[in-house]
Amino acid sequence: MEPVSLLYTHPDFYVIHKPAGVTMHDSKAGIIARTLPLVSDDALYLCHRLDDGTSGCLLLARHAAAAAYLGKLFATHRIQKFYVALATGKPKKKQGTISGDMKNRRQGQHILLSSTQHPAVTQFFSQAIAPGLRAFVVKPLTGKTHQIRVALKSLGTAILGDVLYKGTAAERMYLHAWQLQFTYRNELICVSCPPSSEFMHQPGFMPWLAQIDAVEKLNWPGYQLPR
């Protein structure tokens, strides 16, 4: 397992690299317990979460007031998140928007419904990078549990290593929180976390990633979230 590392330090928060396999809430071995030895703070606060198997950018507040402020930014969709993922199979569509309500089914799984009362909204681009292997860059507009995993499963391309959603078995789940972009008290914050060595060793991944100059400037579909 890769170590936790600091990506960005602010007086009010940190952005860290969360390794795949580290959980959020374990008081002894979770992400906060693993981060505290790296900093001078006595306490840190979760503002959002990543699934245990997901790696990449995670934002931790340094005090309660910052946690409340950042939590509000997440709740009002003012923090842009960009992910990369690898999947097997051919998707029902190569790019676009996936929108639908999500329902907890069984054994921790969720399913995507055709209704859109409180939808999970996920936008993506994808490209085949090797025989049977496809890379995705994903922008979730909402923050539902397992949202990206369910969205890619609905395309017929479950994430590589995501055995909960019948993805092809692998040494890890190939979902990575690549970039965070947001404005914090009039300051623009942009933080990237390079994908881990497991991604880099997959055929075609690095040439594909090098083609993406500025992820926020991709031709993302227009979509207005309901207020």
Rank of each mutant, 00 (worst) to 15 (best):
M1A: 11
L7D: 03
D12I: 07
Y14W: 03
H25C: 02
I31T: 07
D42T: 12
A43V: 03
L44H: 01
Y45T: 12
C47S: 08
G56S: 11
L58C: 11
H63A: 04
L70I: 15
L73K: 08
L73C: 10
H77N: 11
L86K: 00
K93M: 13
Q95G: 02
Q95R: 13
I98V: 00
S99A: 07
D101C: 11
M102S: 09
K103T: 14
Q109S: 04
I111K: 09
L112F: 07
L112V: 08
S115Q: 09
Q117R: 13
Q117C: 08
V121P: 05
F124I: 07
A128S: 13
I129H: 04
A130G: 06
F136V: 04
L141R: 10
A151N: 03
L152A: 03
A158H: 03
L175E: 12
L175F: 01
H176I: 15
L180G: 10
Q181A: 14
T183W: 05
Y184P: 09
L188C: 11
P194N: 08
S196H: 09
F199E: 05
A210Q: 13
D213H: 14
V215E: 04
L218V: 10
N219Q: 15
W220F: 01
Q224A: 08
Q224M: 00
L225D: 02
